[in-house]
């Protein structure tokens, strides 16, 4: 048997995004699209029909000029663990054809494009709008299809797609580690957005592993997750030193204690 006790314990991959560092440059979005063969149309200004697995929201403190503040909030798929972290993510539990699944070994919510038949129930279920439907056939300008990566299959029209935490990178890293008879190391499996972020705002790793950076970061007093009250149990944590940003992560009734 190779590997230590970690081998038996399930991994729980997740992210901690430091919003204080995020400049809203959009490198994560572009890196993601380039890594995952995300298509693009001639007009992408209708953001309700624009596939961005990673999307950077610009959120505001809703105050009038000159007290307005902005904050950028990158939103990948949250890979929700669902109630009690049992793997019944909002989307996974509703997919009628098991085309999206919760991998208990990694905590990653997968999407099987060839099985999805496009009912879009998962999109209705996801409060983060992390899921995107291929309303159009993906079309690349002549020749540009040569820049597509074989590690991620391009999606056909009529199916739902979303961020996979670059699962193919995990597979590649795992294969390599297997051949070398060892475990995948923290640095070996990093998502494209993490790798690309020029500000180093994104940290990715195993939330269950005390040796990984995310393990400590998620415990920061300034850490929060989006819509925790819904008990979706997201695996993406955010850090912000600004209270209004942390408060924007959830909904509060007027007199609620924030």
């Amino acid at each position: 048997m190779k590997g230590g006790h970690n081998n038996k314990k399930n991994k729980k991959f997740g992210m901690v995004i430091n919003l204080d560092k995020c400049t809203g440059c959009g490198s994560c979005m572009v890196a993601c699209m380039s890594e995952n063969n995300v298509p693009f149309k001639k007009d992408e200004t209708n953001k309700l029909d624009s596939i961005t697995w990673m999307r950077v929201y610009k959120i505001t403190n809703k105050k009038k000029f000159p007290d307005t503040e902005f904050c950028f909030l990158p939103r990948p798929c949250m890979h929700c663990g669902g109630h009690g972290d049992h793997g019944h993510s909002p989307c996974v539990s509703v997919c009628p054809a098991t085309a999206t699944d919760y991998d208990h070994e990694t905590g990653i919510v997968s999407q099987i494009y060839t099985r999805c038949f496009g009912c879009r129930y998962c999109m209705a279920a996801c409060p983060y709008h992390a899921r995107y439907f291929n309303w159009w056939d993906p079309i690349w300008p002549e020749g540009m299809e040569k820049t597509l990566s074989p590690n991620v299959s391009p999606r056909m029209r009529g199916v739902v797609e979303k961020c996979s935490f670059c699962y193919h990178r995990y597979q590649l890293a795992k294969e390599k580690a297997y051949l070398e008879e060892r475990e995948v190391e923290e640095g070996e499996y990093q998502t494209a957005c993490t790798e690309a972020c020029p500000s180093g705002a994104i940290t990715f790793g195993d939330l269950n592993n005390p040796e990984h950076k995310v393990y400590k970061l998620k415990k920061s007093p300034n850490a929060f997750r989006l819509l925790e009250k819904l008990q979706t149990n997201p695996k993406v944590y955010y850090i912000s030193s600004k209270k209004w940003v942390r408060d924007a992560g959830d909904n509060y009734i007027l007199n609620d204690k924030k």
Binding site: C95, P96, A97, A99, R115, C116, F117, G158, V160
Partner: peptide, 18 residues
């Protein structure tokens, strides 16, 4: 549905939780 020709997957790959 986006892929009507595959809609029978709902029976074939049925997810009992849905």
């Amino acid at each position: 549905v986006g892929q009507p020709l595959r809609s029978w997957f709902i029976f074939w790959h049925a997810n009992v939780h849905s």
